[in-house]
Computed example of a mutant assay.
Amino acid sequence: MSDLLAISGPRIFDGHRWHDDAALLIEFGHVSGIVGADDIPANAKRVQLDGGSIVPGFVDLQVNGGGGVLFNNAPTVASLRTICTAHAQFGTTALLPTLITDTVEVNVAAIAAGKAATEQRVAGFIGLHLEGPHLSLARKGTHDPALIRPMDDSDLARLIAARKDLPNLLVTVAAETVTPTQIRAMADVDIIVSVGHSDADAATTSAAFNAGASMATHLFNAMSQLGNREPGVVGATLSNDNVHAGLIADGIHVHPAAIAIALRAKSQGSHVFLVTDAMSQTGTDLKTLTLNGRTITRADGALRLADGTLAGADLDMIDAVEFMHTTIGLPFEEALRMASLYPAEAMHIEDEYGHLEPGAIASFVHLSDQRKVSATWIDGAEVFRA
């Protein structure tokens, strides 16, 4: 019996261009091609979808929780499965569950959970993002200042060891609290290093980039800003064509005009990509949640601590795409790339993720004509249907 599957009906966006009157061919969990509707192989099992579009699955590199679970509060493989399932209903097919600054013990548990999720092939799980604890107190955001600390030799050794057990590892550090030598040691073992929660000047940030950091975490938020005499982390990021930048596109974290400026600055080379920075509320009607013993309240499209500090985002990826299209005015296909191809490129996994060209993992989303998620497929299997 053939494993070949042909999915037709909607328009198909392969990450680069649109295909009309075509079928997506899937074999053994990977894309084998896109062919005209009249050229579907006779041995293929046919699936007909109604209207809308098929687009590459979204890749989210900053996901703190979902489905009622915050990874910090329950760093287990069961939590990772719940988080991945919650985000699949919003089109995310590959994600990095993110651990916010916490104790060494919680970090160890999170890494162990990531290893187990890899071994159990949890659908949608592609690695971990460890955001802290080696950050700047001046730009701590919602991170608990009592848990922020410099990186020591044992921390570095733990991260290098973790990379061997995980398919991908992203680490956010402040440029002024982690040395270029430490950054180089991480980059040398294919840990993706991102500068974030940093009050560094542009020279210090550029030194971090030169040492191997290749990303900035939630651009504009929790970092030194672009000034006329001191460009800060924002300026160093926007002026470096080799540095990718995550963006929380909810209209609350970053003003639309600032987003537009960033997109112009990053029009060549590495791109701005979308992240949700979602907490446990995604896929639920939760109104409050807890992080490190502090209450976060969900209201008016935002998540905030009692003092008003933003604490993650009340955002899912399809809404971020829609914001970039309707509010910022990007062509829809470019907004899609910001949620799929560009984050895959930032993690150096674009051979398999972020597009639907031959050889890619068959993870994709069926959007309705109203651009709502109708169904989500991961590794060639349907995991969600509205």
Rank of each mutant, 00 (worst) to 15 (best):
C84T: 08
A123D: 10
N210I: 06
H19D: 00
S267N: 14
R121I: 06
G65V: 06
V77G: 04
N240I: 05
V104S: 08
T376G: 01
S32Q: 09
E230L: 09
S194Q: 03
R139F: 07
I261T: 14
A113L: 14
M347V: 10
S267R: 15
A202G: 00
G124K: 10
G65Q: 11
A258E: 06
L336Q: 09
A222Q: 05
V171F: 08
F220H: 13
G124H: 10
S198N: 02
A146E: 08
S79P: 07
D14V: 00
L303M: 11
D60T: 07
K45P: 00
M347G: 09
A6M: 02
A211M: 03
Y353H: 14
L25W: 00
S340D: 04
M186D: 04
N168S: 13
T288N: 15
N73K: 11
L137N: 07
P150T: 02
L159W: 09
T103N: 11
I328K: 09
I26P: 01
L170D: 05
G127C: 13
Q89K: 15
K164W: 10
V106C: 14
Y353G: 03
P133R: 06
H134R: 10
T326K: 15
V55R: 02
V195E: 04
G359K: 08
A187R: 10
I126C: 10
V373H: 02
V106S: 08
G33H: 01
H129V: 05
P133D: 06
A208E: 00
L219I: 03
F58M: 11
T179L: 09
F90V: 06
